[in-house]
Computed example of a mutant assay.
Amino acid sequence: MERLSYDYFVFPGVTDRALRRYRAFLQPPGRRPRFPREAGCSCRGCSLDDVRHARDVLEKVLRRLPPRPRAELARQVHVLDRRYAERTLPDPLAPHRPWRSNRWWWRRQADGPEGT
């Protein structure tokens, strides 16, 4: 699926990289809130530095996979989504932002360096 995709952000190996990035963001133990950070570069490799973009890529992949692989990946992503929701804070200004994402993982507070 990755090899056949015409999407710039979906390329061979991206599912593994995005999943690793999502796990790494949630890896530090503890209960302190985590704050996603913007990627320093918007190229398809560097954009995964932003965990929210990594989650976007996982969503794209999930939509295009056949049923069995989709279910397997969805189980892993669902567990990480729960942890992401627990470790990040809702952004009270999200409804007022000009870009207003419809993806819940973009409606979380994201200012400051990651993890502080």
Rank of each mutant, 00 (worst) to 15 (best):
M1T: 15
M1N: 11
M1K: 13
E2I: 14
E2Q: 15
R3W: 05
L4G: 12
S5P: 07
S5Y: 06
Y6Q: 15
Y6R: 15
Y6T: 14
Y6W: 12
Y6I: 10
Y6N: 15
D7R: 15
D7G: 02
D7I: 15
Y8H: 13
F9W: 11
F11E: 04
P12C: 07
V14S: 13
V14H: 02
V14A: 12
D16M: 00
R17N: 03
R17L: 14
R17F: 09
A18Q: 00
R20Q: 15
R20V: 10
R20N: 11
Y22M: 13
R23Q: 14
R23P: 01
R23V: 02
R23N: 03
R23H: 10
A24L: 14
F25V: 00
F25R: 00
L26W: 07
Q27G: 08
P28R: 15
P29G: 10
P29R: 14
G30C: 07
G30E: 11
G30L: 04
R31Q: 13
R31D: 14
R32P: 01
P33C: 04
R34T: 04
R34M: 10
F35W: 14
F35D: 10
A39I: 01
A39E: 11
C43V: 03
G45E: 14
G45M: 10
C46L: 04
C46S: 10
S47R: 04
D49Y: 02
D49P: 00
D50K: 01
D50T: 00
D50F: 02
D50S: 05
R52E: 04
R52M: 03
H53T: 07
D56K: 00
L58F: 11
L58Y: 12
K60N: 03
L62F: 12
L62M: 13
L62H: 08
R63H: 10
L65H: 00
L65M: 09
P67S: 06
P69N: 08
P69T: 11
P69R: 09
R70T: 06
A71W: 05
A71M: 11
A74Q: 15
A74E: 15
R75Y: 06
R75I: 07
R75C: 06
Q76C: 02
V77Y: 00
L80Y: 05
D81F: 04
D81K: 04
D81W: 04
D81C: 07
D81V: 04
R82Q: 14
R82P: 05
R83P: 01
R83K: 10
R83C: 02
R83M: 05
R83T: 07
Y84V: 02
E86I: 05
R87I: 08
R87V: 12
T88D: 00
T88R: 04
T88Y: 02
P90F: 09
D91K: 05
D91R: 05
D91H: 02
P92Q: 09
P92S: 06
L93M: 09
L93F: 07
P95C: 13
P95R: 12
P95I: 12
H96T: 06
R97E: 10
R97S: 06
R97Q: 14
P98N: 05
P98Q: 09
W99Y: 12
W99N: 10
W99Q: 11
W99C: 02
R100K: 14
S101L: 06
R103V: 06
R103D: 05
R103Y: 07
W104M: 03
W105I: 14
W105C: 13
R108P: 03
Q109C: 07
Q109N: 02
A110Y: 08
A110H: 13
G112F: 11
G112S: 10
E114V: 02
E114I: 00
T116R: 09
T116I: 03
T116W: 08
